[in-house]
Design a protein around this nucleic acid. Structure first.
Lengths: 330, 330
DNA sequence: TTGTAAGCGTTATCAG
DNA sequence: CTGATAACGCTTACAA
């Protein structure tokens, strides 16, 4: 920067002013400075700038699992919205681990990001205290945690789950097995509770033995399906509460040589562009991932602008594709 | 930091020494400092530290498309390996756009990352000059660019493509349609060339009309398939040179009411855990994504350590699952 | 309109 | 072993 200044015959202060689009400098000096910058190929040091201004124009995004396409879509949407507002996104992948999440949150705090977007791995909110202590704007995404007081962007699946319950019952399913998420996540608990009560209301309560908790990943879904289908009074349909567990369940069912939906129906939470191409096309509960990411980013931007954005509640919806036998029987 | 210093009755220099694990401080002063840090909940400012040390302990990773699961897997692997070596990864998503890629590279340079990992969106290497000018360690991943002189981590698919060609011919396919990648990407060109020459050697050269270029994304694959299947002398098999285009092609073929592999065979480049669950299970060329990511990160670390790491060449392999009719006919 | 100078939170050099 | 002190590269009153 000193080089640029001397090259243009001005002070560093003027260079800085040109760089930051201040009104002060003359057209003429501005041109000289710009020319010098061009000639020297100068690029400002964002570190030094941030140290001085205490703003990094960066968001930290901590997601639970990057290879889960649901979160990948969210990440992309967050990043697009952030960029549209001049922010850059540092993405951290917690891999569904609470400790790793804490580590990352700390790293991001140390780097002085301007705001934090977190999809909490578990209910354990120890990491939140540190964030709150620094007063850093924070938005929770997808999952909430018990005593948190910060904006939350989530999706309400109650209605969709009720629709699914009705569809299953309508298709003649007597016993529905549920592959639920971890009970120390809000989505794990809520989806199970909402679906359970919807089925109960229809007179087909879920049998306690027909509920297995997984960890939102493929392998756990596969094992859960194995367990459920090994039961003497096995379910006639399986509902997995996230896409990875659903795929694991489908794989297991196939390995058992069962046909879907003939021998057993399957429905899963989350949709993917290629789900219609599966054998069979899966009936799903679709979440508005792009809207989630965008809303969360906007929420954080509002928070940074000292506004008080409300929670965002989006709605999931049922997409029937026949994997529960609903076309044939319902 | 000043607070910590006065709390512990030492100077900031000593606090710094404790923080950085210098040998100097006494056990006793060290303990006092640590206690003060704990009590005040002090966290060092990574920005200031980096400004002083000119090291950020951060890699920049620019990928072509985050929602392409192939790249998501790579990103995850890079991040794991980097973390194991004490580096943090800033992920930027170019969305297959050259301009966006340039923007991001610049942003990362400005933030003074310690090294850059790039999956180039196109052959256009204008962005590289800026990187080279700064002398920043750079590693290319998945795709190479013409005159680049920096380590490249790539996958050799020649053998797998030859296997695929033989399999297709063996299954009785007379006319193979190719949905290739953009010809301004190394992978787009190479895969087409290698596959083409393999088929030619077997006496079944690809007809020029049977080659359509896409952009490595779903929609382009779908359109390419529509075009190819609309031909009077349409192909008996379609080979898509990446997973997204392959899925698009499969969707199109299904919409046309064609059966796979009965009416048309399909094979795609890239594998995914759920490909066996598709209808039909797809025959693919699988790339070692995790190894790619890890190797690239290691390569960058070596470069930073002033070593001269060689290029890394991994190998893809054919996985037959029957979508080309190879079980029935081959 | 422009320049001077202080300071952002660290680390590193040099005395003590 | 420890403490002043000078950078690191930038922004921003304040003065001119």
């Amino acid at each position: 920067m000193k080089d640029v200044a001397s090259h243009a015959g001005v002070s560093t202060a003027t260079v800085s002013r040109v760089l930051n689009g201040h009104a002060a400098p003359t057209q003429e000096t501005r041109a000289r400075v710009l020319a010098a910058i061009e000639e020297l190929g100068y690029r400002p040091n964002a570190l030094a700038r941030s140290l001085r201004t205490t703003a990094t124009k960066t968001f930290g995004l901590v997601i639970s699992d990057l290879v889960n396409p649901f979160f990948a879509e969210i990440a992309r949407a967050v990043e697009q919205e952030a960029r549209a507002h001049g922010y850059c996104v540092v993405l951290a992948n917690a891999d569904e681990s609470a400790e790793q999440q804490t580590t990352y949150v700390r790293t991001l705090l140390d780097r002085r990001v301007d705001g934090l977007l977190v999809c909490p791995a578990t209910d354990d909110a120890a990491w939140m205290d540190e964030v709150v202590a620094t007063g850093l704007p924070l938005v929770l995404l997808d999952r909430s945690v018990p005593g948190a007081d910060c904006p939350v962007v989530r999706v309400d699946g109650a209605e969709a789950l009720a629709d699914l319950a009705a569809t299953l019952v309508g298709a003649g399913h007597e016993r529905v097995g549920v592959i639920a998420g971890p009970s120390d996540t809000s989505t794990g608990r809520e989806r199970l509770a909402q679906f359970g009560s919807a089925l109960a209301e229809l007179g087909h309560p879920v049998h306690p033995d027909h509920v297995v908790h997984g960890d939102f990943r493929w392998e756990s879904g596969k094992q859960a399906a194995a367990k459920l289908m090994g039961l003497p009074d096995r379910p006639t349909a399986l509902v997995a509460m996230d896409n990875l567990m659903g795929l694991g369940a489908l794989e297991q069912v196939r390995e058992l040589g069962l046909s879907v939906p003939g021998d057993v129906g399957i429905a899963v939470y989350d949709d993917q562009p290629w789900f219609p191409l599966l054998d069979p096309p899966l009936t799903v509960i679709a979440q508005p991932t792009v809207e989630m990411g965008r809303a969360a980013a906007r929420c954080l931007i509002a928070l940074i602008a000292d506004e008080q954005p409300p929670d965002v509640d989006l709605t999931a919806r049922l997409v029937k594709r026949g994997s529960c036998g609903e076309t044939g029987r319902g």
